[in-house]
Design a binder for these strands. Sequence first.
DNA 1: ACTCGACTTGGACATTATCCAGAGTGGCGG
DNA 2: CCGCCACTCTGGATAATGTCCAAGTCGAGT
Lengths: 124, 124
Amino acid sequence: MTAQRRVVAEVLDGDHVHLTADEVHMRAVAKLPEISRATVYNTLGELVSLGEVMEVATDKRAKRYDPNAHRPHHHLVCAQCGAIRDVHPSGNPLADLPDSERFGFSVSAVEVTYRGVCPNCAAA
Amino acid sequence: MTAQRRVVAEVLDGDHVHLTADEVHMRAVAKLPEISRATVYNTLGELVSLGEVMEVATDKRAKRYDPNAHRPHHHLVCAQCGAIRDVHPSGNPLADLPDSERFGFSVSAVEVTYRGVCPNCAAA
DNA sequence: ACTCGACTTGGACATTATCCAGAGTGGCGG
DNA sequence: CCGCCACTCTGGATAATGTCCAAGTCGAGT
């Protein structure tokens, strides 16, 4: 546990939002100016391997990192401003996939992304 | 409808797989050598706007384009080799999102990505 | 204090996507 | 048939994101 990794962990823990790798880097630089992008990417990759954070691919421009990896949840994305909210649907989508639709895959996870327009953008 | 756009449409229609923009470009070049990347991107963007093809963000490396945009379906992705299959689950995930979890959004679409390991990779 | 290994750094590089200025093309009125 | 206009395409530059590598740095153990 080095100073650099602690800073990355603090950035993710401080705000429970969904940051891009670049945003994590910028915030890390604010706390530790000499930290490099490579270290941020390395550390994020390790945190993902450890299961401490999740990668989220809601848009294709950049990965986002979700520090709320321990409680299963899905995401609600505004199509206009890109805002992301965590949501907790009632059903279990894994159960909705019958064996006949699994093609022999061993299915281990499911990601659900709801898309819509947030109240702010709807008002504008 | 120019020659270039016809070629892009043919590429997408010829194989019902999930091509990246770059794969579309390579296949388009095979049919029409002087087509440029910009034109492929433009045309793909127009097709998406028209609702003829869907963008799929199963990994973060590159967008993929799904020509099967007219029948709602979801995707089953192999975590190892990246193979993508279309699947048709039984339930309707939109119904699983109660109003209390919508935060005022007008939710219009849902994407579901199942992740697992395909039979080929499981055998290897 | 020395050595070794792990970590970090900074920059180069790769990939994917977008932008832009200029050239090309086709239709249409004259 | 000619020239004009709107639109499209091209090729290259550029941006955004992510990865890799060689060398430097730091700390633990001896």
